[in-house]
């Protein structure tokens, strides 16, 4: 009698997780279709895609209920959660270098002009830069000026 309830509960949980995961994957696809530019499409695919496949893996783990399957499901989920932001980062970077346009209604772009097209380095905005290179040797010291700097220099941050 009680085992019936337990199996029913597990089946219900599996069903719910499967459905929720599939809906999140649909959300990722719809977001990819509807968003206006590359970065905003990646917002949808990274978050919804990672959570959707993770939730489906939870459903798989509940359905089988074995240690080996659970381990593999957890490994897949962790791997996707670790790699999809990294993939988003490299693709965003590549998109910048190939000249992918951003949405015309972007509010603010502090990244503009910070990439060096020749040697592929990325510059820091002037107000967050270290003042003296001598501070670098002591680890905690550079934190203090970099944190207090934004408040002090707020007015002139409109100039790139």
């Amino acid at each position: 009698m009680t085992t019936d309830y337990v199996t029913f509960g597990l089946e219900l949980a599996t069903a719910v997780f499967m459905l929720v995961g599939a809906l999140f994957m649909l959300l990722a696809g719809l977001g990819a279709l509807r968003m206006p530019d590359l970065l905003m499409r990646m917002h949808a695919t990274t978050k919804a895609g990672a959570l959707g496949s993770g939730v489906i893996m939870v459903a798989v783990a509940i359905h089988f209920g074995e240690a080996g399957v659970t381990t593999r499901a957890v490994a897949i989920t962790l791997f996707i959660m670790l790699t999809s932001p990294v993939a988003a980062h490299v693709i965003a970077r590549a998109g910048y270098f190939t000249g992918t346009p951003m949405w015309s209604r972007i509010v603010r772009d502090e990244l503009k002009g910070k990439y060096d097209r020749d040697n592929h380095t990325l510059d820091t905005p002037p107000r967050y830069k270290l003042k003296a290179t001598a501070d670098e040797s002591t680890a905690p010291a550079p934190d203090a000026p970099s944190e207090s700097q934004p408040e002090k220099q707020k007015p002139d941050d409109s100039t790139p």
Binding site: T46, M81, V86, H89, A92, K129
Partner: peptide, 26 residues
């Protein structure tokens, strides 16, 4: 940090500056 920012609401980490002082977030 960059991974967690990418997976939290409305923010996507793009790149770290070469001198590692700032993270650019969309």
């Amino acid at each position: 940090l960059a991974n967690m920012i990418s997976l939290t609401p409305g923010s996507l980490s793009l790149d770290v500056s070469t001198d590692r002082r700032v993270l650019y977030v969309h």
